[in-house]
Simulated scan of single mutants.
Amino acid sequence: MADEVQRQIDALGPWFHNLHLPSGHQTVPDHFLGGDFPSFKWEQIRAHIPEDLAGWRVLDVGCNAGFYSFELAKRGASVVALDMEPLYLDQAQWAARQFGLQDRVEFRQQQVYDLARSNEQFDLVWFMGVFYHLRYPLLALDILSRRTQRMMMFQTLSLPGEEVYPDTEDHPITQREPLLDPGWPKMSFIEHRFSNDRTNWWVPNHAGIEAMLRSSGLRVTARPAEEIYVCAPNAETAAWKWDTQYDAVFPRGAVPNEAQETAAALHAVEAGA
């Protein structure tokens, strides 16, 4: 039986997530990132997620082989896991059966942009390791913000530095020097490849990450580790409340602003309880 499990692991390779299977097998024990990936990431952030997720609906964007989906499902959540890569979905569905979690995780071959045509809402949106791979990242963040009822776990590749420029409220059109400051919110565009990956499109700085989160209607509540941000809904800062560009993407009334504001208010009450 053990040899059969290893045969199936090999047949489904190559793997990016090192899953520790109930059989004792690991899917990629010698990970090129070093260490036990993504277990070491999970150890950094697990304390920021409720231990009991019973009744929670979770969205895992870019689920890969399902590591985070499984950890959240083990805490009682009902998980919708998205990925566009058929190999990853095959791996995740096979692994879900190994863990006995196939009834708690729904896998979909879907892009994040497809959610703009949906009314679905999620208590927790897991958005790690995807943002910088997207050609239209801020659009994706806006879409996911409007689907987030309680919290979002956000992670992206980022530029070095923690600087934040103190005054980004407004400047005359002739005063552009502040835009060159290391702390001005910005993203570097990757035209060709970065880390030998042509899907690495953007690398934001810390100030840019926080500014984009705020602009999409989210507030940072914690930073468990480098490049990782825990967020809660904050519709008051959302540009989609006044910028009509989003009407071309979001069906009118699909996710009313009032519903988002109510969710944010409920979250604030729960956080203060």
Score class of each variant (00 low, 15 high):
residue 186 K to Y: 01
residue 158 S to Q: 15
residue 152 M to I: 11
residue 189 F to G: 00
residue 161 G to F: 10
residue 170 D to Q: 13
residue 157 L to A: 10
residue 180 L to A: 14
residue 182 P to Y: 07
residue 173 I to R: 08
residue 174 T to F: 10
residue 155 Q to T: 01
residue 183 G to A: 10
residue 179 L to I: 12
residue 180 L to R: 11
residue 189 F to D: 00
residue 163 E to H: 12
residue 162 E to A: 11
residue 191 E to P: 02
residue 151 M to S: 15
residue 150 R to F: 04
residue 158 S to D: 08
residue 186 K to E: 00
residue 187 M to N: 03
residue 157 L to W: 07
residue 175 Q to C: 10
residue 168 T to H: 03
residue 187 M to D: 00
residue 172 P to D: 10
residue 167 D to T: 02
residue 161 G to Y: 11
residue 191 E to T: 05
residue 155 Q to M: 14
residue 162 E to R: 15
residue 190 I to N: 08
residue 156 T to R: 06
residue 187 M to P: 00
residue 155 Q to K: 13
residue 183 G to D: 09
residue 162 E to N: 14
residue 187 M to W: 04
residue 164 V to M: 05
residue 162 E to I: 08
residue 166 P to M: 04
residue 167 D to P: 02
residue 179 L to V: 08
residue 190 I to L: 03
residue 155 Q to D: 11
residue 158 S to W: 00
residue 160 P to G: 06
residue 191 E to Q: 10
residue 153 M to P: 01
residue 151 M to T: 12
residue 175 Q to G: 00
residue 193 R to Q: 12
residue 166 P to F: 06
residue 152 M to L: 15
residue 151 M to W: 08
residue 174 T to L: 04
residue 165 Y to K: 03
residue 152 M to H: 06
residue 174 T to P: 01
residue 155 Q to C: 06
residue 166 P to Q: 04
residue 191 E to N: 04
residue 174 T to D: 13
residue 166 P to I: 07
residue 187 M to Y: 05
residue 171 H to K: 13
residue 171 H to D: 01
residue 189 F to P: 00
residue 185 P to T: 05
residue 189 F to N: 01
residue 158 S to L: 09
residue 150 R to H: 11
residue 180 L to D: 12
residue 193 R to N: 07
residue 164 V to D: 04
residue 154 F to G: 10
residue 152 M to W: 09
residue 174 T to G: 04
residue 192 H to A: 11
residue 154 F to Y: 11
residue 179 L to W: 09
residue 158 S to K: 14
residue 190 I to Q: 01
residue 170 D to T: 11
residue 156 T to Q: 02
residue 190 I to V: 15
residue 158 S to I: 10
residue 188 S to I: 12
residue 177 E to W: 04
